[in-house]
Protein backbone atom coordinates (compact mmCIF):
# COMPACT_ATOMS: atom_id res chain seq x y z
CA UNK A 1 0.00 0.00 0.00
CA UNK A 2 2.79 2.37 0.96
CA UNK A 3 4.87 1.70 -2.16
CA UNK A 4 1.70 2.00 -4.24
CA UNK A 5 1.07 5.49 -2.83
CA UNK A 6 4.66 6.40 -3.45
CA UNK A 7 4.50 5.27 -7.08
CA UNK A 8 1.30 7.22 -7.67
CA UNK A 9 2.63 10.46 -6.20
CA UNK A 10 5.90 9.98 -8.10
CA UNK A 11 3.93 9.60 -11.34
CA UNK A 12 1.91 12.72 -10.57
CA UNK A 13 5.06 14.79 -10.00
CA UNK A 14 6.74 13.43 -13.13
CA UNK A 15 3.64 14.09 -15.19
CA UNK A 16 3.33 17.71 -14.09
CA UNK A 17 7.05 18.18 -14.75
CA UNK A 18 6.73 16.74 -18.27
CA UNK A 19 3.68 18.91 -18.99
CA UNK A 20 5.50 22.11 -17.95
CA UNK A 21 8.54 21.19 -20.05
CA UNK A 22 6.30 20.22 -23.00
CA UNK A 23 4.43 23.53 -22.96
CA UNK A 24 7.68 25.45 -22.69
CA UNK A 25 9.19 23.51 -25.62
CA UNK A 26 6.08 23.93 -27.78
CA UNK A 27 5.91 27.64 -27.09
CA UNK A 28 9.60 28.06 -28.01
CA UNK A 29 9.20 26.09 -31.25
CA UNK A 30 6.13 28.13 -32.15
CA UNK A 31 8.48 31.11 -31.92
CA UNK A 32 6.98 32.74 -28.86
CA UNK A 33 10.28 32.85 -26.96
CA UNK A 34 13.37 34.94 -27.57
CA UNK A 35 15.88 32.17 -27.09
CA UNK A 36 18.58 34.66 -26.25
CA UNK A 37 16.77 35.00 -22.97
CA UNK A 38 15.23 31.62 -22.40
CA UNK A 39 16.43 28.62 -24.39
CA UNK A 40 14.08 25.72 -25.09
CA UNK A 41 14.36 22.64 -22.81
CA UNK A 42 15.59 20.35 -25.60
CA UNK A 43 18.58 22.61 -26.18
CA UNK A 44 19.40 22.66 -22.46
CA UNK A 45 19.02 18.88 -22.51
CA UNK A 46 21.43 18.58 -25.47
CA UNK A 47 23.94 20.76 -23.68
CA UNK A 48 23.68 18.69 -20.50
CA UNK A 49 24.14 15.54 -22.55
CA UNK A 50 27.27 16.96 -24.19
CA UNK A 51 28.66 18.09 -20.87
CA UNK A 52 27.98 14.90 -18.93
CA UNK A 53 28.29 12.16 -21.54
CA UNK A 54 30.40 13.60 -24.36
CA UNK A 55 32.87 15.05 -21.83
CA UNK A 56 32.95 18.48 -23.43
CA UNK A 57 35.96 20.40 -22.13
CA UNK A 58 35.44 23.89 -20.77
CA UNK A 59 38.38 25.83 -19.34
CA UNK A 60 40.66 22.79 -19.19
CA UNK A 61 38.20 20.41 -17.57
CA UNK A 62 35.10 18.30 -17.96
CA UNK A 63 31.93 19.08 -16.06
CA UNK A 64 32.94 16.38 -13.54
CA UNK A 65 36.10 18.26 -12.72
CA UNK A 66 34.19 21.52 -12.24
CA UNK A 67 31.61 19.70 -10.19
CA UNK A 68 34.23 18.07 -8.01
CA UNK A 69 36.20 21.29 -7.55
CA UNK A 70 33.10 23.16 -6.41
CA UNK A 71 32.03 20.36 -4.11
CA UNK A 72 35.52 20.19 -2.57
CA UNK A 73 35.81 23.95 -2.03
CA UNK A 74 32.34 24.06 -0.59
CA UNK A 75 32.93 21.11 1.75
CA UNK A 76 36.17 22.54 3.10
CA UNK A 77 34.57 25.95 3.62
CA UNK A 78 31.57 24.27 5.25
CA UNK A 79 33.80 22.30 7.63
CA UNK A 80 35.73 25.41 8.68
CA UNK A 81 32.44 27.28 9.03
CA UNK A 82 30.80 24.74 11.31
CA UNK A 83 33.97 24.29 13.38
CA UNK A 84 34.26 28.05 13.90
CA UNK A 85 30.51 28.55 14.41
CA UNK A 86 30.10 25.71 16.88
CA UNK A 87 33.26 26.53 18.81
CA UNK A 88 32.16 30.14 19.24
CA UNK A 89 28.70 28.90 20.24
CA UNK A 90 30.08 26.58 22.92
CA UNK A 91 32.35 29.28 24.33
CA UNK A 92 29.46 31.76 24.29
CA UNK A 93 27.12 29.26 25.95
CA UNK A 94 29.45 28.80 28.91
CA UNK A 95 30.93 32.28 29.21
CA UNK A 96 28.49 35.06 29.90
CA UNK A 97 31.09 37.80 29.39
CA UNK A 98 32.09 36.42 26.02
CA UNK A 99 28.43 36.14 25.07
CA UNK A 100 27.74 39.73 26.03
CA UNK A 101 30.71 41.16 24.14
CA UNK A 102 30.67 38.91 21.09
CA UNK A 103 26.93 39.00 20.36
CA UNK A 104 26.82 42.58 19.01
CA UNK A 105 29.64 41.82 16.56
CA UNK A 106 27.93 38.65 15.48
CA UNK A 107 24.72 40.52 14.76
CA UNK A 108 26.48 43.29 12.78
CA UNK A 109 28.42 40.63 10.96
CA UNK A 110 25.27 38.79 10.10
CA UNK A 111 23.49 41.78 8.61
CA UNK A 112 26.54 42.68 6.51
CA UNK A 113 26.16 40.84 3.21
CA UNK A 114 29.12 38.46 3.35
CA UNK A 115 29.13 38.07 -0.42
CA UNK A 116 29.96 41.77 -0.76
CA UNK A 117 33.40 41.35 0.79
CA UNK A 118 34.54 39.17 -2.13
CA UNK A 119 37.00 41.81 -3.48
CA UNK A 120 38.61 41.94 -0.03
CA UNK A 121 38.74 38.16 0.16
CA UNK A 122 40.46 38.00 -3.22
CA UNK A 123 42.92 40.69 -2.09
CA UNK A 124 43.73 38.62 0.99
CA UNK A 125 43.64 35.10 -0.37
CA UNK A 126 44.41 35.44 -4.06
CA UNK A 127 42.81 33.81 -7.07
CA UNK A 128 43.24 30.16 -6.06
CA UNK A 129 41.06 27.80 -4.05
CA UNK A 130 41.81 29.68 -0.82
CA UNK A 131 39.55 32.60 -1.70
CA UNK A 132 36.61 30.25 -2.54
CA UNK A 133 37.05 28.36 0.71
CA UNK A 134 37.40 31.59 2.66
CA UNK A 135 34.21 33.10 1.28
CA UNK A 136 32.29 29.86 1.84
CA UNK A 137 33.54 29.79 5.45
CA UNK A 138 32.68 33.42 5.98
CA UNK A 139 29.11 33.21 4.75
CA UNK A 140 28.28 29.88 6.41
CA UNK A 141 29.61 30.08 9.99
CA UNK A 142 26.83 32.25 11.35
CA UNK A 143 23.82 29.87 11.16
CA UNK A 144 25.65 27.12 13.11
CA UNK A 145 26.84 29.71 15.63
CA UNK A 146 23.43 31.17 16.40
CA UNK A 147 21.52 27.88 16.20
CA UNK A 148 23.93 25.91 18.37
CA UNK A 149 24.01 28.74 20.90
CA UNK A 150 20.20 28.81 21.04
CA UNK A 151 20.10 25.02 21.44
CA UNK A 152 22.64 24.99 24.26
CA UNK A 153 20.93 27.82 26.11
CA UNK A 154 17.46 26.23 26.04
CA UNK A 155 16.08 26.73 29.53
CA UNK A 156 15.99 23.48 31.41
CA UNK A 157 15.90 24.09 35.17
CA UNK A 158 14.20 20.79 36.01
CA UNK A 159 16.78 18.77 34.09
CA UNK A 160 19.58 20.61 35.89
CA UNK A 161 18.01 19.81 39.27
CA UNK A 162 17.47 16.19 38.27
CA UNK A 163 21.11 15.79 37.27
CA UNK A 164 22.21 17.46 40.51
CA UNK A 165 20.16 15.08 42.62
CA UNK A 166 21.62 12.01 40.91
CA UNK A 167 25.12 13.33 41.55
CA UNK A 168 26.10 14.20 37.98
CA UNK A 169 29.17 16.30 37.20
CA UNK A 170 28.99 19.33 34.91
CA UNK A 171 30.55 17.38 32.09
CA UNK A 172 28.08 14.51 32.52
CA UNK A 173 25.27 17.06 32.32
CA UNK A 174 26.76 18.51 29.15
CA UNK A 175 27.22 15.21 27.34
CA UNK A 176 24.08 13.44 28.49
CA UNK A 177 21.56 16.28 28.48
CA UNK A 178 22.64 19.68 27.22
CA UNK A 179 24.31 18.56 23.98
CA UNK A 180 21.76 15.95 22.83
CA UNK A 181 19.02 18.37 23.79
CA UNK A 182 20.55 20.94 21.42
CA UNK A 183 20.93 18.53 18.49
CA UNK A 184 17.74 19.59 16.66
CA UNK A 185 18.97 23.21 16.59
CA UNK A 186 22.53 22.16 15.77
CA UNK A 187 21.28 20.29 12.71
CA UNK A 188 19.04 23.16 11.66
CA UNK A 189 22.20 25.30 11.68
CA UNK A 190 24.14 22.76 9.62
CA UNK A 191 21.41 22.57 7.00
CA UNK A 192 21.40 26.34 6.59
CA UNK A 193 25.20 26.39 6.48
CA UNK A 194 25.40 23.81 3.74
CA UNK A 195 23.36 25.90 1.29
CA UNK A 196 25.07 29.19 2.17
CA UNK A 197 28.49 27.54 1.79
CA UNK A 198 27.54 26.50 -1.73
CA UNK A 199 26.38 30.03 -2.50
CA UNK A 200 29.64 31.50 -1.17
CA UNK A 201 31.75 29.11 -3.20
CA UNK A 202 29.98 29.81 -6.48
CA UNK A 203 29.98 33.58 -6.01
CA UNK A 204 33.70 33.46 -5.25
CA UNK A 205 34.19 31.55 -8.49
CA UNK A 206 32.45 34.36 -10.38
CA UNK A 207 35.11 36.68 -9.05
CA UNK A 208 37.96 34.74 -10.52
CA UNK A 209 38.59 31.10 -11.09
CA UNK A 210 39.89 28.47 -13.43
CA UNK A 211 37.51 25.78 -12.31
CA UNK A 212 34.08 25.33 -10.76
CA UNK A 213 30.45 25.42 -11.86
CA UNK A 214 30.40 29.15 -11.17
CA UNK A 215 33.06 29.74 -13.80
CA UNK A 216 31.19 27.45 -16.17
CA UNK A 217 28.09 29.56 -15.86
CA UNK A 218 30.05 32.77 -16.33
CA UNK A 219 31.87 31.61 -19.46
CA UNK A 220 28.65 30.43 -21.11
CA UNK A 221 26.78 33.61 -20.22
CA UNK A 222 29.56 35.86 -21.58
CA UNK A 223 29.41 33.92 -24.83
CA UNK A 224 25.61 34.35 -24.80
CA UNK A 225 25.40 30.56 -24.82
CA UNK A 226 22.07 30.43 -23.03
CA UNK A 227 21.65 26.66 -23.24
CA UNK A 228 25.08 26.31 -21.63
CA UNK A 229 24.22 28.80 -18.89
CA UNK A 230 21.01 26.99 -18.07
CA UNK A 231 22.80 23.66 -18.14
CA UNK A 232 25.20 25.10 -15.52
CA UNK A 233 22.25 26.23 -13.47
CA UNK A 234 20.76 22.74 -13.57
CA UNK A 235 24.12 21.36 -12.47
CA UNK A 236 24.18 23.76 -9.50
CA UNK A 237 20.66 22.70 -8.57
CA UNK A 238 21.73 19.05 -8.68
CA UNK A 239 24.67 19.83 -6.43
CA UNK A 240 22.48 21.77 -4.00
CA UNK A 241 19.96 18.95 -3.88
CA UNK A 242 22.69 16.40 -3.33
CA UNK A 243 24.28 18.10 -0.33
CA UNK A 244 20.96 19.08 1.15
CA UNK A 245 19.66 15.52 0.87
CA UNK A 246 22.74 14.20 2.64
CA UNK A 247 22.18 16.71 5.46
CA UNK A 248 18.50 15.86 5.64
CA UNK A 249 19.13 12.11 5.84
CA UNK A 250 21.78 12.57 8.55
CA UNK A 251 19.39 14.82 10.45
CA UNK A 252 16.60 12.23 10.33
CA UNK A 253 19.00 9.48 11.45
CA UNK A 254 20.60 11.35 14.31
CA UNK A 255 17.72 13.49 15.58
CA UNK A 256 15.31 10.58 15.25
CA UNK A 257 13.15 11.58 18.21
CA UNK A 258 11.60 14.53 16.40
CA UNK A 259 8.95 12.56 14.55
CA UNK A 260 6.83 9.50 15.27
CA UNK A 261 8.27 7.48 12.41
CA UNK A 262 11.82 7.92 13.66
CA UNK A 263 10.76 7.00 17.21
CA UNK A 264 9.02 3.85 16.03
CA UNK A 265 11.96 2.80 13.87
CA UNK A 266 14.57 3.18 16.62
CA UNK A 267 12.26 1.69 19.25
CA UNK A 268 11.79 -1.44 17.14
CA UNK A 269 15.50 -1.67 16.43
CA UNK A 270 16.42 -1.51 20.12
CA UNK A 271 13.85 -4.15 20.97
CA UNK A 272 15.20 -6.48 18.26
CA UNK A 273 18.74 -5.93 19.47
CA UNK A 274 17.75 -7.06 22.96
CA UNK A 275 15.92 -10.17 21.83
CA UNK A 276 18.86 -11.23 19.63
CA UNK A 277 21.18 -10.84 22.64
CA UNK A 278 19.18 -13.27 24.73
Amino acid sequence: MKTMNFVISFLKYSLSFVIVLGLWEAYARYGGLNELFLPRPSKIGDKLYNLFFKFEIIEQGTIYWHFFATLAQMSIGFCYGIIIGNTLAIIAAFNETFRRYIAPYAVVFNVTPGIAVLPLIIAWFGFGWESKIALATLVCFFPPFINTLTGLLKKNDEAIELFQTIGATHSQYFWKQQLPNALPEIFAGLKLAITTALLGTIVAQFGSATEGVGILMQRFAFRLDMAGSFASLVTMAIMGLLVFTIAEVLDRRIVFWRDTKGLERVSRKKQRKLSSND
Binding site: E158, E161, T165, I166, G167, P180
Partner: peptide
Protein backbone atom coordinates in the same frame (compact mmCIF):
# COMPACT_ATOMS: atom_id res chain seq x y z
CA UNK B 1 24.86 19.90 48.64
CA UNK B 2 22.78 17.25 46.82
CA UNK B 3 23.44 13.70 47.98
CA UNK B 4 22.79 10.43 46.24
CA UNK B 5 20.82 8.88 49.08
CA UNK B 6 18.14 11.48 48.34
CA UNK B 7 16.17 11.08 45.12
CA UNK B 8 13.73 13.51 43.63
CA UNK B 9 10.70 13.54 41.36
CA UNK B 10 9.14 16.64 39.81
CA UNK B 11 5.80 17.76 38.39
CA UNK B 12 7.29 17.21 34.95
CA UNK B 13 8.69 13.76 34.29
CA UNK B 14 11.98 15.30 33.02
CA UNK B 15 12.81 12.36 30.77
CA UNK B 16 15.42 12.50 28.04
CA UNK B 17 13.47 12.31 24.76
CA UNK B 18 16.24 10.47 22.92
Amino acid sequence: KPRTDIGMMFQKAVLLDW
